[in-house]
Amino acid sequence: MQYQDRIYLDHNSTTELNSELLARLGEVKSFFANPSSQHSSGKMAKKWSEENINEIYKAFHCKPNDFEFLLHSGTSEASNTFLNLGAKDCLFYFASDHSCITQVASLLKTKGRKAIELPLNTDGHFNEDDIISIIQSEKGEGKNWLTFTWVNNETGVVWPLKLARTIKDKTGCSIFVDATQAIGKVPDAFELDTSLDCYSWSSHKFGAFKGSGFSFYKSELTTQPLILGGDQQGLRSGTLNTSGLWSTALALIDIKKSYPYKDILDLKNKIVKLVTANSSFEYIQNESCNTICLIHKSKKADLLLIHFDQHGLDVGSGSACSSGSLTAPKSLVAMGLNEKASRSIRISLAKSNLVQEKELIKRLSKVCEKL
């Protein structure tokens, strides 16, 4: 099957480039200069970058006095900057967090610092009172961090930001919101709680260039630069990625203007109904509009991926950012589904799948017949 005939269903891993961005790629040529340079081209690039940062603030209804802005390579870098270098007393985290967080927690432990894994319920949510009680009994006197995954990349489970606000109010913990999977997955992805301390995104998750991402963070947070050098952003050295910043702003503006969340949810529900009609599959309930986590009653993920692939369907398994690995999804293991986790796959939808609905349903029907 030719590449162009395949149907891509792994949008939690990465998305295709935004169509508006593709149509305007030529604009990048006008602002290629280093924005730290003092000549006119550099000053133009700096002005252009500042305008794009302002557009990102506007997309989230925020202002510079709400948060500082940090352009980086994605949430993996952000978690190392704020949690590894910024955690002074204790890091509270969940086993369902992305590996860029759980591995930071493991690193902190090897340094003799305190990192505590918090319990998860079998539905992927948590007991608010239990979490508050654990934090209150274990936190240090200084800086304590709690990681909060807004939308889980493996299961699609959504944690409302109001829960993070409640925990912060009752424990005094600083909150690191992993917002990587929110845009394009939940309709309120642009509605931030500005009382929370840090948000982070990876731009390739919503149609911008790979290798770019950004964080909003409170100015009073104390941490150290992960990358040293020219001090371009204070908290991060390195020539500002102007094209990555531009692509991020443009993709956000386009999604904010119009995105078919309801249509994607309708397609998701049709797929769930079709696949679960085959008693071989179990669906993990979740609140996102696009994510379908399925568990087969007997076949391992590697065999399932082959069946889908042979029918021109690109689906995922395991963490959305390490889809080259067939390790069991850590979120399912954290939910107590240890044995089932190795038999799971993930379908994650986006706008582009809507025009493919008829062919997608046809191919899925054939896969279900074989499985």
Rank of each mutant, 00 (worst) to 15 (best):
Q2K: 12
I7Y: 01
I7C: 04
Y8M: 14
L9Q: 03
D10S: 10
H11F: 14
N18Q: 09
E20T: 15
A23K: 13
S36V: 06
G42W: 11
G42Y: 08
K43H: 06
M44V: 05
A59C: 12
F60G: 02
C62K: 07
E68S: 08
F69G: 05
F69A: 09
S73A: 09
S79T: 12
S79N: 04
T81N: 08
G86H: 08
A87D: 07
K88E: 15
K88M: 02
F92P: 01
Y93V: 03
F94E: 09
S99Q: 05
C100Q: 02
I101E: 06
Q103N: 12
T110A: 02
G112L: 07
G112S: 11
R113W: 06
I116P: 00
L118K: 05
L120I: 12
T122L: 01
I131C: 03
S133L: 10
Q136G: 14
K139C: 07
K143A: 08
K143P: 00
L146D: 10
T147K: 01
W150V: 03
V151T: 10
P160R: 05
T166E: 07
I167Q: 03
T171D: 04
G172P: 01
C173Q: 08
V177N: 06
V177K: 02
I183M: 02
G184N: 02
P187L: 06
F190P: 04
F190S: 05
E191V: 01
D193T: 14
Y199L: 14
Y199S: 12
Y199C: 10
S202E: 04
F206Q: 04
A208I: 07
K210G: 14
F214W: 02
Y217R: 05
K218Y: 01
E220V: 08
Q224L: 11
L226R: 12
G230T: 14
N241S: 04
S247G: 11
K256V: 00
K256H: 04
P260V: 03
Y261A: 03
I264A: 04
T276D: 14
A277L: 09
N286A: 10
C289Q: 08
S298K: 15
K299T: 15
K300V: 15
K300P: 03
A301E: 14
D302S: 09
D309S: 15
Q310D: 09
H311I: 00
H311V: 05
S317Y: 05
G318T: 10
A320M: 05
A320D: 11
C321N: 13
C321W: 12
S323P: 02
G324C: 13
T327L: 09
P329E: 12
N338H: 07
E339N: 10
E339A: 10
A341W: 02
S342V: 12
I345C: 05
R346F: 06
I347Y: 14
K351L: 14
K351Y: 07
S352W: 00
N353S: 15
L354Y: 08
K358R: 13
E359Q: 08
K366T: 14
K366Y: 07
V367M: 01
